[in-house]
Write a protein that binds this DNA or RNA. Structure first.
Length: 642
RNA sequence: GCCGGAGUAGCUCAGCCUGGCAGAGCGAAUCCUUCGUAAGGAUUAGGCCGAGGGUUCAAUUCCCUCCUCCGGCUCCA
């Protein structure tokens, strides 16, 4: 007597009685599965196994073998933390404690914790885990739940007033501890194999700075100790690779206090890498028919009023008063480029017109956001603006996507694509927006690209396709972008003469391959751990003479390498060879050439790479030939000694 | 911008709680050593103790304000 049906992950339907829970469904599939059920998913959302299913729901059963099990376990770890906290601190008050991608956090208040306290709480948590308390879901009437919190926890009451607004609400209980919670949770505290409290920071109730400040304790948990160890090692690795640390060690850039916040200085090593990135972008722009233009950093605010930036962006702009007139540092390059376009009259035959500029822009980000090169006040966009006829949109966007694909492949970065649509604050009419959004959508469809929809994430002047890539540590970053813009051409009254001898409005496409050089550089530093591919390495070869007797030979080698346009230095300090190698290794120089009396006599070099491999009696010519190929092909690792 | 933590030599950090001559390691300079695949030795220099104000006989140390950085929140390329 099945009266409803649910859809299983394989697409098949299963009939179950009305009112059946996920656990019932699992038992229906098989008793073994029923016994193993920890939680479930309804329409992709992780919920408790006691949740009733509705007709037509797409459901999934979560067991301790599922990927989602870890989230459930971490959610329970958050409860164990809360229980330990309440045991140790009478005044502690709980708010919310969800799982996250990396672990869990619990926002609390009424206590003042420092790192040392975390170790104590961990000890108490361990006792709770060792005691292996059963975790039970208990359903209360709403009034009873309200009564529990009425006296002392306005946050839980707020939750009861908003999200948990049904007649019955669920609590999870373990020993003396109970917490209003939707779940799901594991069955007993003993299932939490390994956990660690990571840091203390702060947050606001419901993420709103108008609300109370809460203390947020981050932690993580795993089934096995070894998984925790691996996680902590990765965290250490990320810390070791921090671009702010490497930037200093490798002498790439600095952001001294005296120059102001978020205003980085690039040292010769850093600029060398940026220059290679610029040249690579330029070669690509050349290939795809872009013309370089250049615009100043400062414009009358008249321009920003015309473009709409003044209305939409003025809070983030640096404004200055010059002879009683208001000027603004440019937050974007597009108005300048649109103005250049405006200076000529154009035929339909001239389009597409493609302008490129590595343009420095200035955005007054919130002070607390600034961080190394990842968030700065001054950054450079490898900007491109295309002025195209409407029927050229698709092929131009396709070309740009091909360029972006090339760039990301060069750095061995996988990526995902998202379509970002009209934001709340925007310029232009509904019709224009709908047209732009559907055009981008059809370009993606026609190119057979998989993409996600990011509603409301577009630029204020048009929708965009964003490319999010993943670095070597598995972290996701925003980078390249293509934006379709029917608005800026209106605002600047841009036109071209068509075949029909009438004026027509061009469409503007904004695009960036790297996004910002600063952010992309930062990601590369961490992605490569400072071990840049040969083509990017600030110092590509270091010559290590064994004694001063070989200095003359070393200089001849250096000249030959420099003739082939390599960046070469000689280590001429009076150090032992071991010391010279150590320093070169620390500086992550791809290749070291060790030269002693043997090499000087034979006219050869001894090659060592930063992967700690070596080979003697190498002819310089064959080394240079190899390096030239390695550089030209932008290969990732030194491979002469492969 | 908001909450919390921190700013001492070029770098990493000790000293601060309990006020009384500013410390170490690394790096740098000089000298010795001329070395065969991840740290040779000695000597010397180097400081507005983030900035300003206050308390005190005396402030790197205690108090206040500001600046900058770090971890988060919110925002974003």
């Amino acid at each position: 007597m099945s009266d409803i049906a649910v859809v299983l992950p394989d697409g098949s339907e299963l009939g179950v009685p009305e009112g059946a829970t996920l656990e019932d469904v699992a038992y229906e599939i098989g008793p073994g599965l029923g016994d193993d059920t920890v939680a479930g998913k309804i329409e992709g959302e992780l919920v408790d196994k006691a949740t009733p299913v509705s007709d037509g729901d797409r459901i999934e059963i979560v067991t301790d073998q599922s990927d989602e099990y870890l989230s459930v376990l971490r959610h329970s770890a958050a409860h164990v933390f809360a229980q330990a906290l309440l045991r140790l601190y009478d005044d502690a008050k709980l708010t919310i404690g969800p799982w996250t991608e990396e672990g869990f956090y619990y926002d609390i208040t009424g206590v003042d914790l420092d790192e040392g306290d975390l170790r104590e709480i961990e000890d108490e948590m361990q006792e709770i885990v060792d005691a292996d308390y059963d975790i039970e879901r208990v359903v209360y009437d709403r009034e009873d739940a309200v009564a529990k919190y009425e006296d002392d926890n306005e946050y839980k009451l707020d939750i009861l007033g908003r999200e948990a607004d049904e007649a019955e609400v669920s609590f999870y209980e373990q020993a003396e501890f109970e917490d209003l919670c939707q779940g799901p949770h594991v069955e007993s505290t003993g299932e939490i194999g390994a956990f660690r409290l990571l840091n203390i920071s702060s947050s606001y109730w419901r993420g709103d700075e108008e609300n109370d400040t809460l203390t947020r304790v981050h932690g993580t948990a795993f089934e096995k100790e070894s998984d925790l160890e691996e996680f902590l090692t990765m965290r250490e690795e990320a810390k070791e690779r921090d671009h702010r640390k490497l930037g200093q060690e490798l002498d790439l850039f600095s952001i001294p206090t005296v120059t102001g916040p978020g205003l980085p200085l690039y040292h010769p090593n850093g600029k060398t890498i940026l220059k290679e990135l610029e040249e690579y972008g330029e070669s690509m722009n050349e290939e795809y028919g872009y013309d370089y233009v250049e615009t100043p950093h400062l414009f009358r605010t008249e321009l920003w009023k015309q473009s709409g930036h003044y209305d939409n962006y003025v809070d983030d702009m640096f404004l200055l008063d010059v002879n009683d007139e208001e000027y603004g540092l440019k937050p974007m390059n597009c108005p300048g480029h649109a103005t250049i376009f405006e200076q000529n009259s154009w035929s339909y035959r001239d389009l597409p017109v493609r302008y490129a500029e590595n343009g420095k822009v200035y955005r007054k980000e919130q002070r607390g956001e600034l961080s190394g090169l990842s968030r700065v006040w001054a950054f450079t966009i490898d900007d491109g603006h295309l002025f195209v006829r409407p029927e050229q949109i698709e092929s131009e966007v396709n070309d740009i996507m091909a360029m972006i694909n090339d760039v990301l492949e060069t750095f061995d970065l996988d990526y995902e694509v998202a379509l970002a649509t009209r934001p709340e604050k925007s310029v232009g009419g509904d019709e224009i927006w709908e047209k732009a959004e559907s055009q981008l959508e059809s370009v993606l469809e026609n190119a057979n690209m998989e993409y996600e929809l990011e509603a409301g994430d577009g630029a204020f002047y048009g929708p965009k396709i964003d490319f999010a890539f993943t670095d070597a540590l598995g972290r996701k970053w925003d980078g390249p972008t293509v934006q379709l813009d029917f608005n800026m051409p209106e605002r600047f009254d841009l036109s071209y003469t068509g075949e029909d001898n009438e004026d027509h409005r061009p469409v503007m496409i904004h695009r960036a391959l790297y996004g910002s050089f600063e952010r992309f550089f930062m990601v590369l530093i961490e992605h490569y751990d400072g071990k840049f591919p040969l083509w990017l390495a600030p110092e590509q070869v270091r010559i290590l003479p064994i004694s001063d007797d070989e200095l003359g030979y070393a200089h001849r080698l250096k000249n030959d390498l420099e003739d082939a346009e390599f960046r070469v230095d000689i280590e001429d300090r009076s150090w032992t060879l071991g010391r010279k190698i150590r320093e070169a290794q620390d500086d992550r120089v791809p290749y070291m050439l060790v030269v002693g009396s043997d090499e000087a006599e034979a006219g050869t070099v001894s090659v060592r790479d930063r992967k700690e491999r070596e080979q003697q009696d190498v002819e310089l010519d064959s080394f240079i030939d190899h390096l030239s190929d390695e550089r030209a092909e932008k290969r990732e690792e030194p491979d002469f000694l492969d």
